[in-house]
Design a protein around this nucleic acid. Structure first.
Lengths: 135, 135
DNA sequence: ATAGAACCTCCAGTCACTGGAGGATCAAGG
DNA sequence: CCTTGATCCTCCAGTGACTGGAGGTTCTAT
């Protein structure tokens, strides 16, 4: 069972070494076992856990959300509804952001096409974004 | 011409007072004119500008992006083509953001809906995030 | 024996705010 | 005129999620 050094774990998961240490500090990763000289060592479970964390972060989950998802997953007998709730909540967030961005997109497009070859004084960019799709 | 106090501007734009002062500090808002006793006063232009900033921020534009858009708009004699180019550029940004969020949404929805009322041991939320959409 | 890679801790900085302490000023009521 | 309470001021510390670097130790290979 070759134990992994922090650099190996970093390469395996595409995570910076400092970030791994940071995750340990905020208890998102468990406290790593150490060699006699004090170096952190890891195993395949750690690779999976860190992989989960990285994916979760990329999907926009906060470290708090990930912490609760992880601790939930460590109680295999518990009901899964809480985990689903966290995901649904996050989904609602994403939906709202998409909706706002679509409105902005429309504004920007209008702005970009009606603003050809005039002077800035007549440029609708600022007003367009100032309205922010709250039209 | 009743001048607005910082609290009025805050209410009008849904911005916290401290945030307005912070925007002044980082030169996103101009240095406010002051009363004799040192209180900041604002007018309708400031309301519009702050509205623009808030909308832009909510839509994911950095303060740097907002600053350049604003400074462009403050050169009324300049050719508007530059602004249109920047607007198109931002449009491309927004398109990319929307596309990314739509992909994210799809994954999240799968994750959130395939997990109804089981045990954590079988929870699809955890697996879904762990897979990170590499499905 | 030694070079250099990889590790360690600790700390400062980033971005975009947010909150609070401690103090000044203003408008209204008594 | 005085007091009360709201509003304002400056300054500073903290947040989340990292990132980077200084200064020092340990491991591995030649």
């Amino acid at each position: 069972m070759a134990r992994l050094m922090i650099g190996d774990l970093a390469r395996r998961t595409g995570t910076k070494i400092n970030t791994i240490r940071f995750y340990e500090e905020i208890a998102l990763m468990p406290r790593a076992t150490r060699t006699d000289s004090g170096r952190r060592t890891y195993d395949e479970d750690d690779v999976r856990r860190l992989g989960f964390i990285r994916n979760g972060r990329e999907l926009g989950f906060s470290t708090d959300e990930l912490r609760s998802l992880i601790s939930l997953s460590e109680q295999p007998e518990r009901d899964c509804g809480a985990a689903a709730a966290i995901a649904r909540n996050h989904l609602a967030d994403v939906d709202a952001r998409i909706a706002r961005l679509l409105r902005l997109r429309e504004e920007l497009q209008q702005v970009a096409t009606t603003c050809e070859g005039g002077r800035m004084a007549d440029c609708r960019v600022i007003d367009g974004i100032a309205d922010g799709g709250v039209s």
